[in-house]
Design a protein around this nucleic acid. Structure first.
Lengths: 207, 207
DNA sequence: TTTTGCGCTAACAATATTGTTAAACGATAT
DNA sequence: ATATCGTTTAACAATATTGTTAGCGCAAAA
């Protein structure tokens, strides 16, 4: 009990943060209302300003947290995979897809934010470009080697990343339309089928 | 000159519409400002209300126009293609991708709108589900027939549509991140490469 | 020429939304 | 008990944003 300096300070801050994440994720920065966030957190909206000064700063805090979260959860673990190149790509896709299943709101949050906020855009560019470029070069070398061994066909690493990102992320951005168009009604079932299909199409691509 | 009933009525309405399309496309409904739209159109913001009553109605008008536009430009022409099933799929993909190149802002406009506005969501569902479902069933029959002939491998039509939609549309939603991550700097060059890669991966998928 | 109607302007009104402040409260230390 | 400090509240302030209205001007019709 030595950490509990004040009544429930961290508690309130956390409540606001959690409510804010939901609000910003579903409605975007412009659509989000600080009063709605406060109400959802069960506090007066003055508290939101007390803890985070402005709507702007509250949003930035959340956005940067999410970037770090993605980098830790998705990009970093890619390195630690083992097995043949084919197997590593397969499990990489599956891990990424499972991550998205556990964070359904992340894609739409990022896409809307980056499109409506130039600062956020630059933030992401800086964070991603340094981090990702080296890894793609490394992947390219591995692919080339595997190609020479006859394990796989010739593939460009940057295009393969584009393929996987597109196939994995898009369903989470557009599942209402995709499901309506293809006559599916259950989200989980549809996503399970997508996952299998995506692994299939990528495996055929690199064969 | 018999159509020109008043000074330049249609002109003003059109100016507002065009300015509104730009504003709504880049900033979404919540981020868009009626005063900004009016300023961009070079009219007082009272005119916007005079012609369209409310921001809401102006947006709905544009949104419904866009839905019809997509259905006319993308979904309908799919039927009129000719040649082998493989060739029809290839040209279908290319036509769709070219349409997106000529309407870069459409994907982000739709995704943000559908996510933040339940009414718009239902609008699209109704428009798409009836229109698309029959076509997918027809495509499935064709695919099955081609599979029996040994032209192609076994594929589910709904999953193939999911693949193509994902691969074609996602780059237009996420090109800032994709290009930064893969080290590309020119949009047109990148998209040209994506187009080739997408055709390649789908052709391998159905082989 | 007068009237009518439409497009238009400028000012106003109403409301929503973010942000601020003075004071109260409650726990802890002195 | 009193002082102190971080937290909280309620009311207020400032501004942004949408929407309205009364009236002007001009062109076509009477």
């Amino acid at each position: 009990m030595d950490k509990q300096e004040s009544k429930q300070a961290k508690d309130t801050e956390q409540l606001i943060l959690e409510a804010a994440i939901k609000e910003f994720s579903t409605k975007g920065f412009d659509g989000a209302r600080t009063s709605t966030i406060a109400a959802a957190a069960g506090v007066t909206h003055a508290m939101l300003h007390y803890y985070f000064r402005t709507k702007e700063k509250l949003f930035e805090r959340i956005f940067k947290d999410k970037i770090r979260y993605i980098i830790n959860m998705v990009i970093s673990p890619m390195v630690e995979a083992s097995g043949s190149i084919k197997e590593r790509i397969r499990t990489g896709i599956e891990k990424h897809f499972d991550f998205l299943l556990a964070n359904k709101e992340l894609p739409i949050f990022f896409i809307t934010t980056i499109n409506s906020r130039p600062e956020a855009y630059k933030e992401v560019i800086n964070e991603f470009s340094t981090n990702a470029h080296n890894r793609i070069c490394a992947l390219q070398k591995e692919l080339d080697k595997a190609c020479e061994n006859g394990e796989i066909g010739s593939v460009r690493a940057d295009q393969l990343i584009g393929d996987i990102a597109s196939l994995n992320v898009f369903p989470f951005l557009a599942y209402p339309m995709l499901m309506a168009a293809t006559g599916h009604s259950d989200f989980d079932t549809y996503m399970e089928m997508r996952k299998i299909e995506i692994v299939e199409i990528i495996m055929k691509r690199i064969s």
